[in-house]
Amino acid sequence: MLCDICKQNVAKVHLTQIIEGKTKKVDLCEACSKAKGIDDPKGFALADLLLGLGAAQQMDQAAPQTGVRCPTCGFTHADFKKSGRLGCPDCYQAFAEGLEGVLKSMHKGTRHVGKAPRRLQGPHDLEERIAQLQKRLEKAIAAEDFEMAATVRDELKRIREQASRPDKAATV
């Protein structure tokens, strides 16, 4: 069995992790397992590696993009498959088509919810976030999850205050 990263050396380290009920397997050679810090005490590196490599494979099946190359940084689909990481922020645009399905299976949603840099915020963003939070609040109340309801209510209050004071440093 060959290493999932370099595809050259014999895999000596075999890892399995259950993430959201899905079993992910990865086989690595000793050099790559050390280089990736999979014995990281905080363990994030391992999860990211598993999910990242899984993502590249999944992207391959969904929409083969062998010819795609990021115009900004020159990163190719093959590079993504090798590392599970992208080359630069613009890669998200270059590989958008293939990434869509990947993000859907990896995350709760495919659209960002939460904080945004203030300079990129418009009044419309605040309205949208308020609407989102109101939905979230109704859901929490229906589920009798009162701590979550309180958290969402605090968030709503904070954002409404910001909406009325647009000059103040804000986080949506």
């Binding site: 999860a47 999910l51 990242g52 993502a55 990481r85 922020p89 998200y92 990896m106 659209r111 960002h112």
Partner: peptide
């Protein structure tokens, strides 16, 4: 920051995309 309205904070690994929070 590298930020997209659609995808949030853009990170090297797609697993951290969006809020980038752990």
């Amino acid at each position: 920051y590298a930020f997209s309205r659609e995808l949030g904070y853009l990170t090297a690994c797609p697993t951290n995309l969006g809020t980038g929070i752990r």
